[in-house]
Amino acid sequence: MSVVARIIEARAARRQKTLIAFNAATLRLGGKTIIENLDLEVRPGEFLCIVGASGCGKTTALRLAAGLYRPTSGAVTFDGEEITEPRREVAIVFQDYGKALLPWRTAAGNISLALEASRVPARERSARIEALLRKVGLPGHADKYPTEMSGGMQQRLQIARCLAQEPTTLLMDEPFGALDAMTRQGLQDEVLSLTQASQTTVVFVTHDLDEAIYLGDRVVGLLPHPGRIGIELDVDLPRPRDQLATREHPEFLRLRRQLFDFIKASEH
């Protein structure tokens, strides 16, 4: 067997495995069932997008995976281990970057927070911070406070802070929901290149169906009240993705139609 074939096979084997698993996970909050009997598997290295109408519990599912919530019944596991609290190899990017950044720390200081938490020695931090800022396209902005930066830049900063954790898994909660269309497309491509290169597993929650198909290896649509799985689509589009070519691809349009029909039906 050739080396290439062996690598491909190894990769396929890895993809069969499960990194995060929801096993009949149910969450009730304040007498309301937010998520009911959710069965979902996230494979290592994949880019999984979760979509659904508002109230379908997609953000809640992400918070369960992050360990910020614990299921009322059922279980959520990471690498076979039950998730009881947040773990270092899993980073979460919140939608409201304005609230998730420390306004009293500069861009460098915000990234430093994650490095301090992982006990990176002080003398190594500045080099790491510089590298991370360059990675997310913010070189030269180290001394700026978040309030001096645009929304897109603040979200890049939050992503940099998450990358400072050196996560194997990135959970993203509608990260580009508050950004304008141009900024959003730029960030989509950057997240793809950042995570594809490092084989990072991504669970990406969004209400933008085009975004989900454009980014994902797989798209899961949830049904609301209570949240459960309604549709599961494999996205067989060539990588690297391209903002024009991918979005004009017949397969993209077919998936888009299928997903739109599903969301429309779920709202009734």
Partner: peptide, 26 residues
């Protein structure tokens, strides 16, 4: 901001670090 406490939790910051780096400056 409650979101900052969640950031602190996902970074697994110690209680002392949460007070000194999040709550007190805020």
């Amino acid at each position: 901001e409650p979101r900052l406490y969640e950031v602190a939790r996902s970074l697994q910051m110690s209680r002392a670090a949460i007070i000194g780096k999040i709550a007190l400056p805020s």
